[in-house]
């Protein structure tokens, strides 16, 4: 979240600086320089829009957090498992792993949806997709208390409509 915010702020500064420099170059007048700064402004504006959207998604995920864990194992069908040591937030509307976001439950019946949730003693397994592609993520949940697991199950059902399957408790 912090990294996304930092990047967004950087692009804001770049965009403003690009505009100022392009204006200055236009006034001078230095057409070539103005064009370069103008193009740079447009590029930074596009990146700024992208980062702002990412930041909005990240805020939404953090606002509706169900579970926060220190690391995740990501696996896609047919691919090798990847270990990720960054902070992971599971929420009603997606999962945020560091600055990477996987969204679900955001566009109603047609978009990406959370399909299944399985919780065992050490890990939580989340499967989500849109019918054409499915992704599975394993997280080390770090929960030692059964009540905490039941709370997560309850919140997941309440917010996403998915009933988590609990095994080994």
């Amino acid at each position: 979240m912090k990294a996304i915010r930092k990047r967004r702020n950087c692009f804001t500064v770049l965009f403003v600086a690009g505009i100022v420099l392009a204006t200055w170059a236009t006034v001078k007048p230095m057409v070539a320089t103005a064009s370069v700064f103008g193009a740079a402004s447009i590029a930074s504006l596009m990146l700024l829009i992208k980062q702002s959207r990412l930041f909005y998604d990240a805020s939404l995920i953090c606002d509706n957090s169900i579970l926060a864990v220190p690391s995740a194992v990501i696996s896609m069908p047919g691919d090798k498992e990847q270990m990720n040591k960054k902070e992971v937030v599971v929420s009603s509307f997606g999962i945020m792993i560091g600055s990477k976001i996987y969204k679900w439950g955001r566009t109603g019946v047609d978009g990406v949806r959370l399909n299944t949730v399985d919780i065992d003693r050490t890990r939580i397994y989340l499967t989500f997709g849109d019918g054409t592609e499915t992704m599975r993520i394993e997280l080390m949940h770090g929960m030692a208390d059964e009540q905490a697991v039941m709370d997560v199950k309850e919140r997941l059902w309440r917010e996403t409509g998915v009933t988590a399957i609990i095994s080994g408790w």
């Binding site: 909005y56 939404l60 606002d63 509706n64 019946v109």
Partner: peptide, 14 residues
């Protein structure tokens, strides 16, 4: 948050 309400509302409409 208000954006959460908006997202839920969008899902309901869908």
């Amino acid at each position: 948050s208000e954006s959460t309400v908006k997202t839920h509302a969008r899902n309901i409409f869908s």
